[in-house]
């Protein structure tokens, strides 16, 4: 029985490590590489912590298994009488604290880039692309209106008559930093873009800016990550990253749809029938 239990405490960490190692093959891992460079830096920090943590995990579990095996197979009449070792205590206090301090300080600049406004790219900070308002249980999106050249105007904090509205469908241009103003209409929500490694709570009474620079075209999931009621799970929306021209065309179509008064011109009808 001794052998069984010693094996048991050695077997499970091995199983855990093997399981973790094969997980990416089974797609039990990140939903693809990050769409933003900042997200890739977050992934890199994750892998750095993962390496350190795996080393410590293996080290401590092996040590535990070893001392269990030694202690359960002890032939000595008496256990080793010791109250500890001052030197060991010093070593295993100082070494982890250096590693931990390094880990903490090493994280700071990514956090600052993500969240501290003075680190935001200036072009994004000055021209938010859209305002996203979370409410039970949908994402309302407000783009600024377009001027006579079809160029988006400045997004005002208060709604303007020519603003463009849509729900659960956020379009952004690729390749430049974009900023979103996040708000909530009712309770707390959280704006979660898993493929971009972005999450930010929407807090009632606050407007919180988020910026990101998407580098890959495509449709990505937008989900709510803060409990907001029974329909929390179904706040499903999409983020569509497209080329600048497509984005501008999208806004113009949005304007056309919004201004559509029911009296369709023949050309528009023909277009619809196609």
């Amino acid at each position: 029985m001794r052998k069984f239990w010693c094996g048991f405490f050695i077997f499970w960490p091995i199983a855990a490590v093997v399981y973790s190692a094969v997980s990416p093959q089974f797609n039990w891992w990140f939903p693809g590489p990050s769409v933003t460079e900042l997200g890739q830096r977050i992934d890199n920090l994750f892998y750095l912590i993962l390496i350190i943590v795996t080393a410590v995990f293996i080290g401590t579990q092996v040590a535990l298994g070893y001392v269990l095996w030694r202690a359960s197979h002890s032939k000595a009449e008496r256990a080793w009488f010791t109250h500890g070792s001052h030197n060991l205590e010093v070593i295993w206090s100082v070494v982890p604290s250096v590693i931990l301090l390094f880990l903490a300080l090493y994280q700071m600049d990514v956090w600052a880039l993500f969240r501290v406004q003075s680190f935001f790219p200036k072009e994004a900070l000055n021209a938010p692309v859209a305002e996203v308002t979370a409410r039970q249980f949908e994402w309302r999106i407000r783009y600024p209106g377009l001027d006579e050249h079809g160029v988006p105007k400045k997004l005002h904090l208060k709604p303007q008559p020519d603003d463009l509205y849509t729900v659960n469908d956020l379009h952004v241009p690729i390749g430049r930093p974009v900023m979103i103003n996040l708000r909530s209409d009712d309770v707390q929500h959280s704006f979660f873009l898993p493929h971009l490694r972005i999450k930010q709570d929407a807090v009632p009474g606050q407007i919180i800016p988020i910026w990101f620079k998407p580098e890959r075209q495509g449709n990505f999931d937008l989900a709510c990550a803060e409990l907001c009621g029974w329909g929390h799970y179904k706040m499903r929306a999409q983020l569509i990253v497209e080329r600048e021209v497509e984005f501008q065309a999208y806004l113009q179509k949005l304007r056309a749809d919004q201004n559509y008064d029911g009296h369709a011109t023949p050309s528009a009808v023909a277009k619809k029938d196609e």
Binding site: W5, V67, L68, R70, S74, A79, G84, P96, L100, A104
Partner: peptide, 26 residues
């Protein structure tokens, strides 16, 4: 928060140290 891992780690090492050289029954 990261520094709170330090006393936790010290405790783990001390538990392993407690078993180390003991006479143990499962």
């Amino acid at each position: 928060t990261i520094m709170i891992a330090l006393p936790s780690a010290v405790k783990v090492f001390n538990w392993i140290g407690t078993i180390w050289g003991g006479r143990l029954q499962f």
